[in-house]
Amino acid sequence: MIKNHIFPTEKVGKTKKEDNIMKKLTAVAFAATLTLALAAPAAAEEGTITVAASPTPHAQILEAAAPLLEEKGWKLDVVEFTDYVQPNLVVDSGEMDANYFQHIPYLESFNEEQGTSLVNAGGIHYEPFGIYPGTKSSIEELEEGDVIAVPNDTTNEARALLLLQDNGLIKLADGAGLTATVNDIEENSLNLEILELEAAQVSKYTAEAALVVLNGNYALDAGFSVGKDAIAYESSDSEAAKTYVNVIAVKEGNENNEGIKALVEVLKSDEIKDYINETFDGAVIPFEDEAADAAEDAQAAADEAASEAAEAETETEAE
């Protein structure tokens, strides 16, 4: 940022010599300011990107990305939210540029229910959904009428119920899939009570519920490790990893803004992938978008070929 230069107020009755000195100082200062302005990289004036994020792991990942983004000329301003509603509302209203906390099914469900116009600007990571101990430490310990706490929002409840089904605790109606609710439970041999709670509250019921089913970020907040504490969790090669990838979401029409593109590029960089793998003990896994990577490689090859052709044509003309 170029600061304004403030010069001393002229003295009344100054000498001609003093006046000449003042003019020279002014000229030098102006030249210095102009030089700084010309030398400053254009990217430095790009501006600030505001992002609404869940504290863990999203805000942490953004904090690690901030220095890399600054190298591209963008300042990152992150505001943390602990719910799943306000981050979408502030982006849809234009108060903030983007958010980073949700997966695509939740985004689509929110748009449908709230009438918002949010879109995916880039998939960054996924968080394996897990079953964690409460008053019981294993599935085998479950008894008649035990309570299992699950998130109550549409897509995350379905994901929790599907994980319970995969582990033999319940059976859902055919075709329930990503819209499953407790009303779709057809078999429940232990008459388990499925306690539906706001996602952020589930981890707080480990003293009351036999087991809890947690989103990855809330498991981290509660101090759980997927590798060490989860009784069961979604595998890395599962369809869930692709379905529930956490994305940068923006208001429709803003997905190609230069700042948003820079943000996604940094978050998908090798540096951030390494940070995620080294920091979160398997609770957060970088999303590998093979189709997008292939497209980028193809574009890079095309650009290189075009550059080589242009150079060859220039050399021919020079001869």
Rank of each mutant, 00 (worst) to 15 (best):
T15Q: 05
A173H: 07
T135W: 02
L172N: 11
E127S: 10
E198N: 09
E46K: 14
E208H: 02
F287Q: 09
E10Y: 01
E239W: 01
E18N: 10
D303L: 10
A32M: 06
V150M: 05
A98N: 07
A160P: 06
A240E: 06
P87Q: 11
I276W: 13
A219Q: 10
Y132L: 12
A27Q: 13
G259C: 04
F110C: 01
L34T: 14
N167A: 11
E315D: 15
S117T: 15
E208D: 12
T179E: 13
A210K: 08
L211W: 14
T48C: 09
A207H: 10
T15A: 03
A27Y: 09
V226L: 09
L89H: 04
D237F: 12
G134F: 09
Y205S: 11
L178H: 10
F7D: 00
Y244P: 00
N257V: 05
A53P: 05
A209R: 02
P55F: 06
P8E: 00
K75R: 13
I248R: 03
S235E: 14
Q201G: 03
A210Y: 07
K72Y: 00
L62R: 04
D229Q: 08
M22Y: 14
E252I: 02
N20V: 12
Y106C: 02
G130Y: 10
A300E: 14
N188K: 09
E258I: 11
E198K: 12
V51C: 03
A158C: 09
E258M: 03
A39G: 06
D303N: 12
E127A: 06
G123L: 04
L38Q: 05
V226S: 01
S54Y: 10
N111A: 11
E10A: 13
D289R: 09
V79T: 15
E296S: 07
F129C: 07
E157K: 15
M22T: 13
E208Q: 11
V264Y: 02
I194T: 01
I260Q: 07
A176N: 06
G47F: 05
L172K: 10
G145Y: 08
T82D: 13
V250I: 02
N277R: 12
E127H: 00
N188P: 11
H103L: 00
Q114W: 03
N254S: 12
K261F: 01
A298Q: 08
A291E: 15
T206L: 10
D166C: 03
A207Q: 14
A32Y: 03
D19C: 06
E296Q: 12
